[in-house]
Computed example of a mutant assay.
Amino acid sequence: GITYHQVAAAQKLLRTLKLPPKTLKKPVKVLILVGMPGGGFLVANAHSYLGDLVKRAGGEVVGGDGNQPLTTPNPQAIAQENPAVVIRLAHAMPTQVKQSFDQIFQQAPYAHLKATQSGQIHDVSAPDFGMTANLQVVTAYRDIQQWLAVAQ
C-alpha cells in the first residue's frame, strides 16, 4: 500500500483476509496430497500453505514429514493415521491428476481410509486452492472449515 500510495485500499484488503483461528472439540486428522501429471504425488505437512489453513481451521495435518513442506507418501503411516478428511490438490492438469488419484484411491491403504469410507475426499485446484497463498484464501479457508465440521 505504501509503495503504490494505496494505504487505505491495502488496509481494507488486509481486513478481508483475516482468518480467525478455530478450535474443534477434537482435532480432525487431514491428509493433504499434491498431485502432478503422470500419476505422482506428494504429501504436504502443516508447514505448507494448505497445511497452515487446515491447522488454523482446527485440523491436524497427518502423513507428512514435519521437517519439509512436501514429502513422498508413506502408505503405512497414512494407514496408521487414518485421516477423516483428504484434500487432493492438483498442482497442474487437474483432470489428469484427478484420474490418477481416483485410480490410487481404489487401492490400499487409500480405499480403506476413514475419509474414503465417509466421502470426505476433496479434489481442489486453482484459483481457490493452490501451492501458495493467494487472494482466494478466505474461500479456501471456509471450505476447509466446512469439511472439518462435517468430519467431527
Rank of each mutant, 00 (worst) to 15 (best):
L50T: 03
A9L: 05
G51T: 04
K55G: 04
Q152C: 09
K25D: 07
N67S: 13
L89V: 10
I32Q: 00
K26S: 12
L135S: 13
V137W: 01
A46P: 06
V54Y: 03
T71Y: 10
Q136F: 14
A44V: 09
H5F: 15
L89C: 07
V138R: 10
G38F: 12
L50R: 01
G66E: 10
I78Y: 03
V61I: 14
L135T: 10
P21Y: 04
G59T: 02
F41L: 13
H47D: 13
Y141V: 00
Q80K: 15
K29R: 07
G66I: 01
V61A: 05
P109W: 08
G66Y: 05
A79H: 06
L70V: 06
A84Q: 05
L17H: 11
V7H: 08
A90T: 09
L14D: 11
P94T: 06
P37T: 07
K114L: 09
K18Y: 08
P20T: 04
V30Y: 02
R142E: 13
D65V: 06
L50E: 01
R88E: 09
A115G: 10
S48W: 03
N134R: 08
D102T: 09
Y110G: 06
L70D: 05
T72I: 08
V97F: 12
H122I: 14
V97Y: 04
V62G: 01
V28N: 01
A108H: 07
D102E: 15
L24Y: 03
K26A: 13
V137I: 11
D128P: 00
Q6T: 12
S100P: 06
P20R: 02
T132Y: 07
A92M: 14
